[in-house]
Design a protein around this nucleic acid. Sequence first.
DNA 1: CACACTGACGGGCAAATACTCACAGATATT
DNA 2: AATATCTGTGAGTATTTGCCCGTCAGTGTG
Lengths: 319, 319
Amino acid sequence: MSTTRSSPESVRLDDAARAGWLYYVAGNTQDEIARKLGVSRQSAQRLVAMAVSERLIKVRVDHPIARCMDLAQSLSDRFGLMSCEVVPSDPDAPGLLTGIAIAAAAELEKTLKSPERRIISLGTGRALKATVEQLPRMACPQHVVVSRLGNMMQDGSATPYNATISLAERIGSPHYPYPLPVLARDPAELAIMRQQEAVRNTISLCEQAHMSLVGIGQMDRNAPLVVDGFVSGAEMEQLAASGAVGEITSWVYDQSGRVIDCDLTARVASAPLPHAAERPVIAVATGAAKLAAIRAALIGRLVNGLITSEATAERLLAP
Amino acid sequence: MSTTRSSPESVRLDDAARAGWLYYVAGNTQDEIARKLGVSRQSAQRLVAMAVSERLIKVRVDHPIARCMDLAQSLSDRFGLMSCEVVPSDPDAPGLLTGIAIAAAAELEKTLKSPERRIISLGTGRALKATVEQLPRMACPQHVVVSRLGNMMQDGSATPYNATISLAERIGSPHYPYPLPVLARDPAELAIMRQQEAVRNTISLCEQAHMSLVGIGQMDRNAPLVVDGFVSGAEMEQLAASGAVGEITSWVYDQSGRVIDCDLTARVASAPLPHAAERPVIAVATGAAKLAAIRAALIGRLVNGLITSEATAERLLAP
DNA sequence: CACACTGACGGGCAAATACTCACAGATATT
DNA sequence: AATATCTGTGAGTATTTGCCCGTCAGTGTG
């Protein structure tokens, strides 16, 4: 079987999906799959492997693990969160995003299932991109997806970690990319940009969002802001020296979670942070490097929800 | 912080969930899990198995093909089919035969790849013709292709949808056209025809066929039987009024899949239907118009395999 | 208190699965 | 058209997994 329109690529993916289905859902051995699909056993194995590596196979564990739930409860109590999810860590791969991406996708899916129109605003980042990839395709023309920040450099080139478009495409919703670059050249340019109707409209949508998902960036040489080229390594060091510990949608904040008043902040074009909002603003972040950034965001009530890993949750609660 | 509640049962399930998570999400081997959880690898294996058997692990395949396989499985279960293929429908061209033709060709190709002699019997119809057109040329002198019914009118003229000759030509096999017209003038003539050695031989080949592909005709003014001029519009209405819902190789049947005892049936010269056969008899059919005809054929076990479209499969399962 | 029963454990082994490597055919490049 | 590159394949091999089975601790029973 193949799609009516059969490019060699899609035929192969079809077979991979089929093999994956037979393996994981129907419980066939690869030998049986090989016979059913009329290929060699090795090829069947490759197809199954491809189904996994192409992320066609989505696995979730449907059981509340007590320790994780305890941690989530403690975090909620300590930082007054509306929602908190803690997923098990793999001690050897603490940075793995898959786990929290699955959890974040489940959270997002709850909102998406609403028959009412929902406005969903998203930040950027690897965690959010991974989250969207864990979401099943579903038809949600009633919702709206809006980006909280641009995905362009000043020169117009795009960054790869754009979750908005992927999400909108996956669920068939209208979407609003953020119509500005991440940073303006200077405050004056920013003021002019903000006058545009498209910009005002998009920011207004972000304010109204029924749910927001954001990533959290740390302040070191491996920070997203540096890696993606928005800030130089030297600038980053200067920021960190002046007390910056993290950023959300490019708004840089100190250890109390207060946005820092600096040259960079004066040029950030992103939608304003929904500080202490009554609507869910959920951070998706994990890893030792982001600890201080996450803690500050929680302290400053920059977010009211968190999805993180067991190991990170423990260390957030530690001192 | 403490565990919310720790019955020996829930602790074990907890570990199972954790092991399942490490295995399926984080991709550890059972050996690694054993080390991380501090148990023997056999225990780790049991935990993973428990996570599966307790349905803690939910797998889904995120590809359009997945829906088709679900439908195929449901159809197989419901109607006791040996094989079932459901191909994605193109929403823009629901009646398009290309998809199912490709699928049917793939199915056929599996049989053709056998080095052993295989007897393949075919019905007629647009779907089968399209199927043969999707088949690559291959050299199969070891096989035999035999037609289950004539392609001549009583006057000796031929109908265009003859798949047997095309198939035999394409794969270089000897072939046996059906040596009778579709309909005899009357039962007496039919009885005489059936005496001929060529006829008996051909019918015998059909009975021995290792694989049979047939189309399914509906009972309306656009039915193949009418369009090809074997039955007049008025006769068709009469047939439909007397409970006929479909036909396979000109054998007309009711909604239970029982061949109707009527004037037409008494004159049908086609090879007898291989009712409830142990060899694959696969119907290739799609479209809203054929729904009742396909359903009845499945109910009556006139075929034990089906290749159809996603949309048709959905509607077959619907009520 | 002996005894059967239940259920988990770990050893061991066969089956299943993943990986490596060399090769053939296709594709791109010159 | 010849050559380099890439992709997919099959064979062989190493690793991983599933499962049988003997053992043993805990438990209820006569």
